[in-house]
Design a binder for these strands. Structure first.
Lengths: 217, 217
DNA sequence: ACATGGTTTAACAATATTGTTAATACAAAT
DNA sequence: ATTTGTATTAACAATATTGTTAAACCATGT
């Protein structure tokens, strides 16, 4: 019976195919496409490297499976940076910075992978079709309108939301890219990882809030 | 006569060795160590790939020549971000942000290369010896003291200079990492590259200055 | 002219890396 | 029990990539 077989598959597949995918994610995430070796991935998965080709045919196809997963996660963090649409704009920005930071902190290897493997191969991974571009554009327009209204009402300073967005992502993402370096450069700063991350999060929030704060003069 | 020969060398060496170095810089900078191919480098330089090995023995040795150059440039931008020690602290920070941005803008490929090839290979490129670490630490301590004094005098808000420094670098560097992506995501924002860069520079300066601005209430 | 020494070439060697295939094991269905 | 199809293995193939070498080249100094 087919149903039974499928159920079996779903239970059993926790083995080879999954093992390869997990090993591949680890390897690709840390070493990139060029640096990763299919033989190493197979070793880490504890299977012969012929298995890898049996399940995924080529290195590229295996890689694309990983790219798809990572891309979905990145999209999540981007959306997070836009904040909760329910709240008023200033609070929306504050919550956006905070939750975006948390998401990046939960996946610190993502940024580098995404930058190297997706951003720099626009021809291969063109995940920005026109309809998506339009939706994003509309989203920014909506944000901008709301911000302009709030600025008119004296609730915040007038800002270009696209630049603000880029600043948020910069402040939240770059420290994770630089972390291995910063930890050696500023030993005590990063001495306690927990403390350092909490401080960075607070710093990003404070910096962005001050950026949109209405000037008193 | 040896002197004459050396002079000749310096004139002639604009050929093969230099050609290889230039091609290697281009390849390593855009593709990284793993992605670069010595054969391609040789082709680009217009020499046989045996020449590459003749002058640099191995791919690694050639690579290290490039790393040395890039590292020096990165050190420059880091120093630039510290601003002109002559000026008062607030102006020092403003000029630091500006000149750091300009340096990064002049070498937009550096950040990714440095992150991938140097930051992530601490064992191979340990360019942070203890004496350098101490000097940097002292530099930050000095900056902090000056900032604390200015804060006490009501000239600026009290801040952790190391965090401020990291924010400056984040705001200035990340946009260049994300540029290829941002250009497709926010077409009109990056429509005119010149305008976009000018706006980013102004945005970074404004953001940092507001961060250190004394609150009125 | 000749010797010297750095430069260049072309062909080769060695290895790494990806991908293929034929034979086999194994589990499920009929 | 036989068939069927997937999973697995081991050995091989093909190519890419780095690195080596012997011989030729060429400018310079003697």
């Amino acid at each position: 019976m087919l149903l039974i077989k499928n159920i079996m598959d779903k239970k059993e597949k926790t083995t080879t195919e999954q093992l390869i995918l997990e090993a591949a994610e680890e390897e690709f995430l840390t070493k990139g496409f060029d640096g990763a070796r299919t033989t190493v991935i197979a070793e880490r998965a504890g299977v012969t490297h012929a298995m890898l080709h049996y399940y995924f045919r080529t290195k590229e196809q295996l890689f694309e499976r990983i790219v798809a997963k990572i891309t979905a996660l990145v999209a999540q963090t981007v959306l997070a940076a836009m904040g909760d649409p329910q709240k008023p704009i200033v609070e929306r920005i504050r919550s956006g910075v905070a939750s975006h930071f948390d998401l990046v902190a939960a996946h610190p290897l993502l940024p580098r992978f995404f930058l190297n493997e997706v951003v720099l191969r626009p021809e291969r991974y063109n995940l920005l079709n026109d309809s998506l571009k339009e939706r994003i554009s509309a989203l920014f327009m909506q944000l901008q309108t709301e911000a302009d209204r709030a600025a008119g009402a004296g609730e915040m300073e007038a800002v270009d939301m696209r630049h603000l967005f880029l600043s948020i992502v910069s402040l939240n993402v770059f420290p994770f890219l630089a972390l291995p370096f910063a930890e050696r450069l500023l030993g005590d700063l990063a001495g306690d990882r927990e403390k350092f991350l909490a401080a960075r999060k607070a710093e990003a929030i404070e910096t962005i809030l001050r950026r949109i704060q209405k000037q008193k003069p």
